[in-house]
Amino acid sequence: MEDHRQDQTPRPERASRVLDDGTRLLFADLHNHTMLSDGAGDPERAFALMRGAGLDVAALTDHASIPHHQLDYLDPADYPDEEALALARMAPHSITDEGWARVEELAEAADVPGEFTAVRGFEWTEPWLGHANVWFSSGYLGVTTPGRVGGLHAFLEDEEPQALFGYNHPGREPGRFGDFQLEPSLVRRMVTLEMFNRYDDYLFEGVDRGRPSPLVACTAAGWRPGLIGVSDEHSRSYGLRGKGRTGVWAREHSRAGVREALLARRTYGTREVGLRLDATLDGERFGATLAPGGGARELRVDVGGGEHDGRPVQLQVLAPGDDGLPRVVALHDAVGGETAALDLPAPAGREPWLVLRVADPSRRGAGPSGHPGTAWGLACASPWYQEDAPA
């Protein structure tokens, strides 16, 4: 029998200290692999191990990629060069129909409303173009349009109207989802962009190769994702410290509650166990769409939990810059475990979004030299989007 006891590490408060709206904080990991694709973990034990690691919500998302019998017959015309074609031919082992059905059985057995939420998903995996997680679907899809996202978009639009999806480790694969090709009918259901994957911060991914920040590029294309962190676990262990995970502000601890919170973008990504983050801008939590306004704005922030209480943190407020990089609108020194309030300056122009990033000022993270937002990232909240603003 699996051990379902919760991790005894001190847990942060689950109620918001800046907004009284009936939501509670859940800790989630929405991206994990097993032996059903290219992972080493036992799918029969995975949900129990994640629950034992202190997670409230967990998903298994094994790969669904280009079928291996098709790899030698890929059309070079679907790729920009031989290097891209060679990368596409490195498709991982994919989940099977039997594996897909078994994950549903395991998720049903592990799911306990009010205690632990188990979700079945899959990772659509085009090795050159990019990887996308899909949750709450009845079926799964391998890559049917190599080199293009059209097959995935058609599957979501025509066959899976309840499914949600998001883009994984954005910018790692050279194709960048066809430069984040937009399908307007799917904007509402494209709910996540991974800012933390495994141990890595993706805010500046590819910038050193002359590419724009994935966050700036994705939103400029017209998508409006929430931000998350994930472990992308491939080992036999789950819920490891230092890897990405997600904070979800949910109205209900259930699959329906998690799905609603993802649609509302009430999420933040982190790679810190037990880190609590909540924030409001003029009374609206991150993920909200704000009416246009020209005056100063009040930002209230609650960040802390566990080992972060009493430690200095840096609050960074980011907006899209004209150079493809996030622009730092404001920096504020704060202390973990305490609420902070600051007035943001009136915008010089229309800002499509603002993002709150929490950093450790004592450590340098990724990013271009001289950029003011390169302190070590601890967490990144979903954007506040501005109504009718150009992305």
Results as ranks from 00 to 15, higher is better:
158 D>M: 13
159 E>S: 14
159 E>A: 15
159 E>L: 14
160 E>W: 09
161 P>Q: 09
161 P>L: 10
165 F>S: 08
166 G>Y: 00
172 R>F: 13
173 E>F: 02
174 P>I: 02
176 R>L: 02
179 D>S: 13
180 F>I: 05
182 L>V: 08
182 L>Y: 01
183 E>H: 15
190 M>E: 13
190 M>R: 07
192 T>N: 07
192 T>L: 11
196 F>C: 11
198 R>I: 10
198 R>S: 14
199 Y>K: 08
201 D>H: 08
201 D>G: 10
205 E>C: 12
206 G>W: 09
208 D>A: 14
210 G>P: 06
215 L>Y: 10
216 V>Q: 13
218 C>P: 05
225 P>W: 01
225 P>Q: 10
229 G>W: 00
230 V>S: 15
231 S>W: 00
233 E>Q: 14
235 S>W: 06
236 R>K: 07
240 L>S: 13
242 G>Y: 07
242 G>P: 09
244 G>R: 01
248 V>C: 12
249 W>L: 03
249 W>P: 09
253 H>D: 07
255 R>G: 14
256 A>F: 03
259 R>T: 05
259 R>P: 08
261 A>T: 01
262 L>K: 03
266 R>A: 14
267 T>K: 07
267 T>H: 07
267 T>W: 00
268 Y>T: 00
277 L>Q: 00
278 D>V: 04
279 A>V: 03
279 A>N: 09
281 L>F: 11
285 R>S: 14
